[in-house]
Amino acid sequence: MVGKVFVSVEEKDFNVSEELDKIKGLSSESGAAVLFVGKVRQNKQGNLDFLKIESFSEMARKEITQICNQSLKQWKLDCIVVKHRYGKLKPDDNIVLLITSSAHRNNAYEASMYIMNLLKTNVPFWKKEISGNEEIWLENN
């Protein structure tokens, strides 16, 4: 079976249950689905108003799709779902959903970690914290 990749880059929020339902039945061989949800974290001062996520959306879709297609082969996955948001998000809002599905859990876990690491450094998104009058562009550690 050839695995499937679903990628979206959009402003609107996602529903985790709905996304899981969408991939049900894609493969009778799937025995594991690993989910990762990245959310807006409150800053250390506790005064974060918004996290503004800027994106080069067209290129981001291409980069994510390329990463997913490579991961499908490397870990023999049945399915990958990536939904990445942009725009003005509040603390605790969802930023990104990643679902990796495979016959056994190890492959799904490993692929999830690999894909998330690349989403942080190789896909054109930029985060800016807005706290009162202060605006700070975030950097990856």
């Binding site: 080069f56 990445h84 990104v96 450094t121 054109p124 930029w126 562009w137 975030l138 950097e139």
Partner: peptide, 10 residues
């Protein structure tokens, strides 16, 4: 051609 700082997605 696009110019940008290091990316901070995820």
């Amino acid at each position: 051609i696009a110019f940008f700082p290091p990316m901070t997605g995820g």
